[in-house]
Amino acid sequence: MSLFFQVDQVTREFHPKISLGDKIASKLGARVETRSVKAVNNVSFQLEEGQTLGLVGESGCGKSTLGKLAAGILETSEGTVLLDQKPVMKDGKKTTTRIQTVFQDPFASLDPRMKVGEAVAEGPIANNLVSKADAIAYVKDWFARVGLDPDFTDRYPHQFSGGQRQRIAIARALAMQPDLLICDEPVASLDVSIQAQIINLFLQLRKDLNLTCLFISHDLSVVRHVSDRVAVMYLGKIVEEGETSAVFENPAHPYTKALLASVPKLVLDKDELVQFEAIEGEIPSPLSPPPGCYFAPRCPYVGEKCNQTNPPLETVGFERKAACFYIPADFEKANKQA
């Protein structure tokens, strides 16, 4: 199968802003600290057409930055993002309309001073997907498809609830007729009962439109529910990647394992409190990551090698990659059985 979407060895660095005074000082020979942060550090993944890749990780792991790189909102420092073998960005400008994004916060992602119908119509008109004359009917059609009353197009965002706004944001993205939809925490700021509605809408539309998706979330249960494959990020790197159910049932990387264990799960058949296990320690600062494996300081399986070199992402099983020198023994066991 030809590669539909490819993120190839992408790195994104953020440099601290150097003030004029510091610049002069450094010219005069003073040492000015210019540590940069690699928010995304040499990350590669591929997506086949129609597939959904879930991207999970805690805050600061770079998943949102990776999403923006993939969406052509941010430029890569190194590496390329390719859609159908063509780069997504050229000279700081996005070259394609085939990738669209749904943002986390529907309160921030809609212009408060623009009627929602206009907001949905704007992109398609500007990119000649629909003529101005047909725009009204086109927008109404999309409103109906995302489960909104088509008569609401004349309203302003503040007249809608969070769930409705997210439907509008989805309509705006889909009205551009994308092939790849990037969802950056689309349900994180919604109420539980509304979350289910939006997830169902997403599943429905994905099937109807044969969308390829990159689904970014910190919520493991949501990612497990919607994605075919999942990639786990930690401090700018993908530490594990594989088929969703396999990763969730039998995690290879110690971080994945610990992350899964730390989520309180509803267990209904026991009369005791819901159990979970906490990972010890904190996420290291991305300004000064540990020398070897970034997870080493918190890892219960840590060995000598871990503190010296950063493990590469290697194939460890069927369609399965992990970046770890000492993969826990229970994974190997389960992997052989499978």
């Binding site: 400008k93 994004t101 986390q104 992602s109 809609l110 500007a126 990119n127 944001a169």
Partner: peptide, 15 residues
């Protein structure tokens, strides 16, 4: 976000 969303559509800088 809404400006980012508009740029990601993509819309021209003028718009």
């Amino acid at each position: 976000d809404y400006v980012e969303a508009a740029l990601a559509t993509p819309l021209s800088g003028f718009q």
